[in-house]
Write a protein that binds this DNA or RNA. Structure first.
Lengths: 109, 109
DNA sequence: TACTTTAATCGTAATATTGCAATGTATTAA
DNA sequence: TTAATACATTGCAATATTACGATTAAAGTA
């Protein structure tokens, strides 16, 4: 049904899934990497950099902004985006708790 | 169009996105957490544990297996699943390189 | 053999995601 | 004011994902 039964899972599990979903598209990965790489905050050069149409990039940026991973600031006709440091750090804590689980058991198979 | 233009991105970006997509559903997060938690490798108790229908769980398990994050072993009429340690470690390297990027810039906004 | 158990697969419905052309909205420049 | 620039939004088509009933396949049990 394409609908995720979020109510069956813990808040933590849904949170992990939501962050992961944001990274689940290479364009959003590329956008974030670019924002990290460029010292000056980048606006719509992302469209050229990534190579997708402007509305598509705008949509991906919106998702990242809604999750709180980036911020946008209007500067004249341009918009300047950058990583939301504090939230990025918080996100890392959540993801690392999941990724860094200790593997206590020996493999069964 | 619902189709991701993977060819526009680097192999690394696609790899990150593919791993992230696997974690982008709380059921798969829950499955993995359960496999980590339980000392004995778990088979279809996952169906009871997670609370989704058996074909649904089976489908999620298949995705995780295709990505190489878990292994399955047939034991009689049951199937025993566990984390694929080596691949999990490799996945962590890829994800951490992405997540742990240094934020050199000051925020612009 | 026939029956049971367990899990995979098939088929399908409902919903979500991706991508972009067209359009709208500010802001700046002329 | 008019035109240009930069980006957001809308609307829609194509594809992907999620979920599960029904069925199948494989192995154990009576």
């Amino acid at each position: 049904m394409g609908i995720t039964k979020s109510e069956k899972f813990t808040e933590q599990q849904n949170q992990i899934a939501n962050f992961a979903k944001a990274f689940g598209h290479p364009a959003r990965v590329a956008i974030l990497q670019h924002l990290f790489k460029i010292n000056t905050c980048i606006c719509g050069d992302l469209v050229e950099e990534i190579g997708l149409a402007q509305p598509t990039i705008s949509q991906h940026l919106k998702e990242l902004k809604n999750l709180g991973l980036i911020k946008g600031n209007i500067e004249g006709t341009k918009v300047c985006y950058c990583i939301h440091k504090e939230n990025w750090t918080k996100m890392k804590l959540v993801m690392n708790e999941f990724l860094d689980q200790d593997i206590l058991t020996t493999e069964c198979c």
